[in-house]
C-alpha cells in the first residue's frame, strides 16, 4: 500500500484486533499515524523530543481508553483529539502555549493570489482577468508520470516548504484523508479558515507540480 489514505473501516478492524492485544495491529496503527502525530505534536511543543513524549503518552492513553472508544468518530480523529489535548497540556507546562489558531491567524493575515496574475489578460483589455493562455493539463499525463516517485518527491518538498498551519492542514486533509470537520475540531479552526489554509497549500503544491511537469517536457 503506497497511500496514506487509510479507510475508517480498515482502522476499525485494526482497533478490534488491538483490543484483543494484537501486537501486529498496534505496529500497523503506529505505522499509519505515528509520523502524522509527531508532526501535529510538534506544532504545540518546543522540541522534537518533547513531541515524541507526547506521541508516546497519547498511545498509552489510547491503550488505556480503547475499551471506551465507541467508534462514534473515526479512530484517527479520536486519536488526534487525544494527542492535541496532551500536547496542549504539555505546552502549558513547557511555558510555550501558542495555540494553533494563533499560528493559523498569522498565516491568514497575509494573502497571495492562487495563480500568478500574469497568467491572465491585464486590466483594460477586452478579456481582462480571463486566462491569457490555457494552463497545461495534468489529467492527460500518463498515470506512471503523474504518480512517479519523482512527482511525489516534488509534492513532498512543496508540502515540507509550507508554513506550519498550511502544512498541517494539507497533511491532514489530502495526505491522511481527514474530513474537513475533523480537521477543524482537532486543530480548533473555523471551517472557513481551514479552507483558506488548505486552498493556499494546494495552490502552492499545484504550482510546484506544474513547474515540474513543464521542466519534464523541455
Amino acid at each position: 500500500m503506497t497511500s496514506a489514505h487509510f479507510s475508517s473501516r480498515e482502522d476499525a478492524l485494526l482497533v478490534d484486533a488491538l483490543r484483543r492485544g494484537d501486537e501486529a495491529a498496534f505496529v500497523e496503527l503506529v505505522g499509519r499515524y505515528g509520523a502524522l502525530m509527531l508532526r501535529v505534536a510538534r506544532l504545540y511543543v518546543p522540541t522534537r523530543s518533547v513531541a515524541e513524549e507526547v506521541v508516546q503518552e497519547t498511545w498509552l492513553g489510547v491503550l488505556r481508553g480503547i475499551d471506551r472508544f465507541e467508534g462514534r468518530s473515526s479512530f484517527k480523529t479520536w486519536l488526534l483529539r487525544i494527542l492535541t489535548n496532551i500536547a496542549k497540556t504539555r505546552a502549558v507546562r513547557e511555558g510555550r502555549s501558542v495555540p494553533f489558531s494563533a499560528l493559523a491567524q498569522a498565516e491568514l493575515e497575509t494573502s497571495e493570489p492562487s495563480v500568478d496574475p500574469d497568467r491572465f489578460f491585464p486590466q483594460g483589455e477586452r478579456w481582462a482577468n480571463y486566462w491569457a493562455s490555457s494552463p497545461p493539463r495534468f489529467d492527460e499525463l500518463p498515470e506512471s508520470q503523474l504518480l512517479s516517485s519523482e512527482t511525489l518527491a516534488v509534492a513532498r518538498e512543496a508540502i515540507d516548504g509550507l508554513p506550519d498551519a498550511q502544512r498541517t492542514v494539507i497533511t491532514m486533509r489530502d495526505v491522511a484523508g481527514f474530513a474537513s470537520e475533523d480537521v477543524c475540531e482537532v486543530l480548533g479552526l473555523s471551517e472557513g479558515n481551514q479552507r483558506v489554509l488548505l486552498h493556499r497549500a494546494r495552490t502552492r503544491v499545484r504550482r510546484a507540480l506544474e513547474l515540474h511537469f513543464k521542466a519534464g517536457e523541455a
Binding site: 497511500s3 494552463p135 493539463r137 489529467d139 504518480l147 511525489l152 495526505v175 494546494r202 507540480l209
Partner: peptide, 17 residues
Amino acid sequence: QMRETIRVAGGLREEDL
C-alpha cells in the same frame, strides 16, 4: 489540475517514526 494535485498528495506516505 487541482484534483490531480489532491490525488498526488494522497499518494504520499508519511515517513516512519
